[in-house]
Amino acid sequence: MKLHREGYLIITIGLIILIAIQVLNYYLWTIIGYWWLYALLTLGVIVMAYLIIQFFRVPKITYVEKTNEIICPADGKVVVIEEVEETEYFKDKRIQISIFMSPLNVHANFNPISGLMKYAKYHKGLFLVAWHPKSSTDNERTTFVIEHEGGKEVLFRQIAGAVARRICYYVQPGDKVKAAEEFGFIKFGSRIDLLLPLDTKIDVKIGDVVKGRITKIGELK
Rank of each mutant, 00 (worst) to 15 (best):
A49S: 13
T42S: 03
P73H: 06
F56E: 02
F55P: 05
Q54R: 15
L51E: 13
Y50V: 13
A39R: 00
V78I: 15
V64S: 13
I81K: 14
Y63T: 15
V64W: 06
F56K: 01
Q54K: 12
F56V: 00
E85D: 10
T62M: 13
I81T: 03
C72L: 10
I53Q: 06
I81E: 13
K77L: 05
E69C: 02
T67F: 03
V79Y: 11
Y63A: 10
I53F: 05
R57P: 08
I70S: 11
L40D: 06
E83W: 08
V58Q: 04
A39T: 07
V80N: 08
I52T: 11
I53R: 09
T67H: 06
L43D: 04
E82F: 01
F55W: 06
T42A: 04
K77G: 03
E85R: 04
V78G: 14
Y50L: 11
E85V: 04
V58A: 11
V47K: 01
A49I: 00
T42H: 09
V58K: 13
V80H: 05
P59H: 14
V58T: 12
V47Q: 12
L41P: 02
E82M: 00
I61D: 09
Y63H: 15
L40Q: 02
I61A: 08
E85I: 10
E83G: 05
I53S: 10
I61Q: 13
L41I: 09
N68Y: 02
L51H: 12
D75S: 00
V79G: 11
V47P: 08
A49D: 08
V58P: 00
D75T: 00
G44Y: 04
Y50A: 04
V78M: 00
V45P: 02
V58N: 12
I52H: 02
N68G: 12
I52V: 02
C72V: 14
L51F: 09
E82C: 12
E65I: 15
Q54W: 12
Q54T: 13
V80W: 02
I46D: 02
M48H: 09
E85Y: 11
M48V: 13
C72N: 15
T62G: 08
I61W: 03
A49N: 11
R57T: 07
Q54M: 00
A49P: 01
Q54C: 02
E69P: 10
P59T: 13
E65W: 05
E83K: 12
V47M: 02
V45G: 06
I52F: 07
Y50Q: 14
V58H: 07
L43N: 07
E69S: 01
V84C: 14
V78K: 08
I52Q: 01
K66I: 03
Y50D: 10
V80Q: 10
I71C: 14
F55R: 11
E85F: 11
A49F: 06
G44I: 00
G76N: 01
G76D: 06
T62H: 14
L51R: 15
L41A: 01
F55V: 07
G76V: 01
